[in-house]
Measured scan of single mutants.
Amino acid sequence: TETRTFTDEREARRFEQEARDNGKDVQVRESNGKFEVRVK
C-alpha cells in the first residue's frame, strides 16, 4: 500500500486516475484540506 498526500485536489485526482488506469485499488480521503490517496 502506498499513500500520497496532496494539497492540490487536481493533483490528487490526476494521481488517482493514473492509478485506476493501471488497475490499482484506490481510496481518496480528504481531511483538513489535504487529500490522502491510498493505492493498493
Rank of each mutant, 00 (worst) to 15 (best):
T1F: 14
T1P: 09
T1Q: 10
T1H: 11
E2V: 14
E2Q: 12
E2K: 08
E2A: 08
E2W: 07
T3M: 08
R4P: 06
R4G: 06
R4V: 12
T5K: 07
T5C: 15
T5P: 03
F6E: 04
F6D: 06
F6I: 05
F6N: 05
F6Y: 04
T7D: 15
T7R: 05
D8M: 00
D8V: 00
D8G: 00
E9R: 03
E9W: 07
E9H: 04
R10G: 15
R10D: 15
E11I: 03
E11F: 00
E11L: 07
E11D: 10
E11A: 08
E11G: 02
A12K: 01
A12V: 03
R13D: 04
R13H: 08
R14C: 11
R14G: 07
R14V: 09
F15C: 10
F15R: 02
E16N: 00
E16S: 05
E16F: 04
E16C: 12
Q17N: 07
Q17E: 09
Q17K: 11
E18M: 10
E18S: 08
E18C: 13
E18V: 08
E18G: 05
E18Q: 10
E18N: 08
E18I: 09
A19K: 03
A19R: 02
R20Y: 05
R20V: 07
R20Q: 06
R20T: 05
D21K: 13
D21G: 09
N22C: 14
N22S: 13
N22V: 09
N22I: 09
G23D: 04
G23T: 01
K24L: 14
K24T: 04
D25F: 11
D25E: 13
Q27H: 11
Q27V: 13
Q27A: 10
V28F: 15
V28M: 11
V28A: 04
R29H: 12
R29P: 02
R29A: 09
R29N: 09
R29I: 15
E30D: 06
E30Q: 10
E30R: 09
E30Y: 11
E30K: 10
S31E: 13
S31W: 10
N32K: 08
N32Y: 04
N32M: 05
N32C: 13
N32T: 02
G33D: 06
G33A: 00
G33C: 00
G33R: 01
K34A: 10
K34E: 10
K34T: 11
F35Y: 11
F35M: 04
F35K: 02
F35R: 03
E36D: 04
R38W: 09
R38S: 14
R38G: 06
R38T: 15
R38C: 15
V39Q: 03
V39S: 04
K40D: 11
K40A: 13
K40H: 11
